[in-house]
């Protein structure tokens, strides 16, 4: 028993120290209305959500919990009712989510374009081609390609390009050593592609924020299929539908749309997103 009586003061001290150093650690103790959003990583990693979050919290007096995840897991959180709202970028899966009754309405609020990036000397010679033609050339084995391989929105777009180019995606996956699955987020995938001097498909925002750390340049940036639309959907199984609806109003309001359109200009010299005011953009 002596050991326990000796350890007790230590444990109490530890609890005390912990409580003092991180006294706000358990914010849950404060009863405050919370709204949970699951977002695709690109909207979070570019800092857009961090920029908008305090504005929404001030306007509506609510604690906004933003959870950054890939589109695949964000949709799953939405289905299970673990979040109230999702902001994602995979049109076909969003439409399915709404059709299955998990979401109320798909509201596009911003867009930009995907890029195919690769080594500056473009060993596969795909510069100037359409995205589909570029993928065909890569499938011929003329260069290595790193895929997200994580069922994210970007991965979904990559599959769509393969299919539009006339390939079966499963065949491509097994096609050979030139096709590499990273199974990671966009940032780590870019780092990997840079190390291997391979090509990859990326959203513009993440590419810009990694530009200083990687040795890749945009190779193909033109083509209707590269359109990348971000939508907000209120989840039917969420627990705070009223506040969730406010978030949709907030994101599509004229003021916030203008701020979204200007976001990134200061840091990167160009806007990361084009506002789309609730409508489907035309490419």
């Amino acid at each position: 028993m002596k050991i326990i009586s000796r350890l007790l003061p230590l444990m109490l001290t530890l609890v005390l120290v912990a409580a003092l150093t991180g006294c706000d650690g358990f914010g849950a103790l404060k009863p405050q209305e919370r709204l949970r959003v699951a977002t695709t990583t690109s909207l979070y990693d570019t800092g857009l959500w961090g920029y908008l979050e305090p504005m929404f919290e001030d306007e509506y007096g609510v604690e906004l919990d933003v959870i950054s995840a890939g589109t695949g897991i964000a949709l799953e959180f939405g289905r299970r009712g673990d979040v109230d709202v999702i902001t994602v970028h995979s049109k076909s899966r969003e439409l399915e989510f709404v059709a299955d009754g998990y979401g109320q309405e798909r509201v596009p609020f911003a867009y930009n374009y995907f890029l195919i990036v690769g080594p500056a000397d473009d060993p596969a010679g795909i510069a100037g081609l359409s995205p589909e033609e570029a993928f065909k050339k890569l499938a011929g084995g003329s260069g290595e390609f790193v895929s997200r391989g994580d069922d994210s929105g970007t991965h979904g777009k990559e599959k769509a390009i393969w299919e539009t180019a006339g390939y079966d995606y499963e065949t491509i996956r097994q096609a050979g050593q030139w096709y590499i699955e990273a199974a990671r987020g966009m940032g780590p995938t870019l780092l990997m592609a840079s190390e291997m001097q391979a090509y990859t498909l990326t959203d513009m925002g993440t590419f810009l924020s990694f530009q200083g750390d990687i040795d890749l340049v945009p190779i193909v940036d033109n083509g209707a299929i590269l359109l990348n639309v971000y939508s907000v959907i209120v989840c039917s199984n969420g627990s705070n539908a009223e506040m969730a609806a406010n978030l949709v109003v907030f994101l599509t309001s004229a003021d916030i749309q203008e701020l979204i359109g200007k976001y990134g200009v200061e840091e990167y010299g160009l806007a990361l997103f084009t506002p789309s005011a609730g409508a489907e953009p035309e490419s």
Binding site: V17, A18, A19, T21, G22, C23, D24, G25, F26
Partner: peptide
Amino acid sequence: EVAGRSLL
């Protein structure tokens, strides 16, 4: 704040 929360 983050370090305090990790510890706690």
